[in-house]
């Protein structure tokens, strides 16, 4: 699967990752699937509800998940994934990420350091229940310049 994502949406996730650093952030990813392409149209941050060390773990409250699915239904979107940050760690899924992953979702991971997000990757479970990296295409907003 290839992901297409607007730069402004990517920046929104990066800001969230920096705001919560050194804790892990998390959020929902909405969009539309078109054959082998997944267009990301919106992301929504959500509170990391993990009780315990949030520098190493995230968890999403089931009620927040319910709200996200309902939001998608009401707005003709699809909940296509989850993003979370890896503070001071690479943007590679951990064993824990793999253990908790569900099929279909794109799992976006933001490698986050004190001064910025160094890398963003996306992963999806394959039929063998292993993570496969997805290509991310970043769309730059085209500015329209009017000549007077």
């Amino acid at each position: 699967m290839k992901l297409k994502i607007k730069k402004e949406i990517l920046e929104q996730m990066k800001r969230h990752a920096l705001e919560t650093y050194p804790m892990e952030c998390c959020g929902f990813v909405f969009g539309k699937d078109q054959q082998e392409q997944r267009d990301i149209t919106e992301v929504k941050s959500v509170t990391n509800s993990k009780q315990g060390d949030q520098r190493r773990r995230f968890e999403i409250d089931p009620r927040d998940y319910l709200s996200a699915e309902r939001y998608a239904l009401e707005n003709d979107l699809t909940l296509v994934g989850i993003y979370h940050s890896h503070p001071d760690h690479p943007a590679i899924p951990s064993e824990h990420d793999l253990k908790q992953a569900v099929p279909f979702f794109s799992y976006l991971i933001l490698a986050t350091e004190k001064n910025g997000v160094s890398k963003v990757t996306s992963w999806q479970l394959n039929h063998g229940n292993e993570f496969e990296e997805e290509n991310i295409e970043i769309i730059n907003k085209v500015e329209t310049i009017k000549n007077k």
Binding site: E24, C26, K50, R55, R56, R57, F58, E59, I60, P62, Y65, L66, E69, I82, H84, H86, P87, H89, P93, S94, E95, H96, D97, Q100, A101, V102, Y107
Partner: peptide, 12 residues
């Protein structure tokens, strides 16, 4: 009625 998958993860 909603069916809710558990969503979690993290570095370790």
């Amino acid at each position: 009625i909603s069916i809710v998958p558990a969503i979690a993860g993290g570095i370790a």
